[in-house]
Design a protein around this nucleic acid. Sequence first.
DNA 1: AGGGCAACTGTTATAATGTTGCAAATCTTA
DNA 2: TAAGATTTGCAACATTATAACAGTTGCCCT
Lengths: 167, 167
Amino acid sequence: MPARALPYRPHNHDLCVDQALAKAKEICRRNEARLTPVRERVLELIWQSHKPLGAYDVLAQLSADGHKAAPPTVYRALDFLQQHGLVHRIASLNAFTGCDHPGQHHCGTFLICRSCGNVLELAAPNITAAINQAATAETFQVEQITLEIAGLCPRCQGDTNDQLMPS
Amino acid sequence: MPARALPYRPHNHDLCVDQALAKAKEICRRNEARLTPVRERVLELIWQSHKPLGAYDVLAQLSADGHKAAPPTVYRALDFLQQHGLVHRIASLNAFTGCDHPGQHHCGTFLICRSCGNVLELAAPNITAAINQAATAETFQVEQITLEIAGLCPRCQGDTNDQLMPS
DNA sequence: AGGGCAACTGTTATAATGTTGCAAATCTTA
DNA sequence: TAAGATTTGCAACATTATAACAGTTGCCCT
């Protein structure tokens, strides 16, 4: 069992999880959507990890809870959370991460450190603008943007053990 | 067996495949890399399809050729082709597409039509610049960019059968 | 309260995608 | 031609995701 990942930026993480959950409840209330226990627990697990969590990681944690769950349970919860903008799926990792600013429409832009695995979500209006401009030039109607930037985060630059994601 | 996908822009497709293969040979010669028969055939198959092809689609085509292949053969060929910039992997589709301008370094930017499935690769310096600027602002060292834009291509906008990818 | 409906969850099985490890074949270079 | 490196074949397996259907829960209506 590895130690919890260090956060991208230092902060009180329990508080940050609590805030995320409170915000999620608020959003679901507004949307008349039901943040059921499973869904809430999945969201909590995802927020507790600083690294994106795979569906089967979530599943394992649920099992550790004593919750007898199968893949569909997790995928359904994840679908729900995605639909309400509470988590993002990182396609290049097949993993999920909490959305930093749910409720607002935004193109999720992610900085993914290949060394420590941490992910930072950016709001980058300039990028979005450039993308929309390029798409418009091709008469393409944009619906969804997947922008995932892999590389080295500040902390991992210059590390001697500069390697592919240690598990 | 579905009819071949319509291209994003009309063109002589056989010619376009031939040119892609010729260019690939040229690049491999320069790189002292071996474009073996399997690798060349995989590249050809990918170019022949206008839609991105899954690894197992490629595998099926190889089998149809009479080539008795297993998944590793395909994945290895795809790895090789990717390493030499001859194909791109589209993470959001788990599929592969031919690279339009191999040899030049570029961030692959893809316009993916969710209706017809065609993909257009863009060279978009403005976007790349905006991304690098945003990453630099976070002291993030960019190594690889995944930018996949899903939506409707010009031809499919306003279609009555505006639906999720018909197979 | 109780019946009916919709949403949610549990369960089993299976599909789709990707990898490991090792042996055999092929190419390259001397 | 022999040694070494690269490539391919092959079997097994790992990981990620979905389908189909049954059971349960919450909610509304009378």
